Amino acid sequence: MNPSAVLTVYFDGSCPLCKREIALYRRLPEAVNLAWVDVSLDQALGPALTCQAAMARFHVRHSDGRLVSGAAAFSDLWRCFSGWRWLGVISARPPLAGLFEVAYQLFLPVRPLLQRSLRRWDRQSHSL
């Protein structure tokens, strides 16, 4: 972990979809300023965040300890990357912030289906 991190990003490393997305962010130059915590490793995550909550919904923690989840957490993360900053800014402003959160909540029930599909695809592509 990076103790001087601007943001701590909690992600589900057991999720093939999440792993792909986080790998994309971690390749960006600004990623060195962030701490990356795989919540699937069942470790202490700090105040007000359990592994169960972190597995169910995306979270980030600011250096001041403030915990943010859902679409707002993605907005905060995107603002850390120069190429994504514009999306972080517009997704945090009303009324788009509310729309992004609704879209995120609609995505959550679909996530397990996408995870299963990606796992199946990964198994098939590795067996070729």
Rank of each mutant, 00 (worst) to 15 (best):
M1G: 15
N2M: 04
P3T: 09
P3Y: 02
P3N: 07
P3I: 06
P3E: 08
V6A: 13
V6W: 12
L7R: 10
T8S: 09
T8R: 00
V9W: 11
Y10E: 06
Y10M: 07
F11C: 03
F11T: 06
G13S: 05
G13I: 00
S14N: 14
C15T: 08
C15L: 01
C18P: 01
K19I: 10
I22W: 04
A23S: 13
A23C: 00
A23D: 11
A23G: 13
L24Y: 12
Y25H: 13
R26C: 03
R26S: 00
R26K: 00
R27A: 15
R27E: 15
L28C: 00
P29M: 11
E30S: 06
E30R: 13
A31R: 11
A31I: 07
V32L: 10
N33H: 14
L34Y: 08
A35F: 01
W36G: 01
W36F: 09
V37K: 07
D38Q: 07
D38V: 05
V39I: 02
S40H: 07
S40T: 01
L41C: 05
D42C: 09
A44Q: 05
L45P: 00
L49R: 00
T50A: 01
C51H: 08
A54H: 06
A54Q: 01
A56R: 06
A56H: 04
R57N: 14
R57G: 09
F58C: 06
F58W: 08
H62P: 01
S63L: 11
D64N: 01
D64E: 05
G65R: 03
R66C: 11
R66T: 15
R66W: 06
V68D: 12
V68I: 15
S69E: 07
A72M: 02
A72S: 01
A73M: 08
F74P: 00
F74D: 12
S75Y: 08
W78F: 15
W78S: 13
R79P: 09
R79L: 09
C80L: 05
C80N: 02
C80F: 02
F81W: 08
S82H: 04
G83L: 08
G83S: 04
W84C: 02
W84R: 05
R85P: 04
W86F: 14
G88E: 12
G88P: 10
G88M: 12
V89I: 15
I90W: 15
S91A: 10
A92K: 07
R93C: 02
P94Y: 13
P95E: 05
G98T: 09
G98A: 04
G98N: 03
L99R: 10
L99I: 14
F100Y: 14
F100R: 07
F100V: 15
E101L: 06
A103R: 01
L106Y: 07
L108K: 04
L108G: 03
P109N: 08
P109V: 05
R111G: 08
R111A: 01
L113Q: 04
L113R: 07
Q115G: 03
Q115A: 06
S117R: 15
S117C: 14
S117D: 12
S117V: 13
L118G: 05
R119G: 05
R120A: 11
R120V: 13
R120K: 07
D122A: 01
R123P: 02
R123A: 15
S125E: 08
S127F: 14
L128C: 10
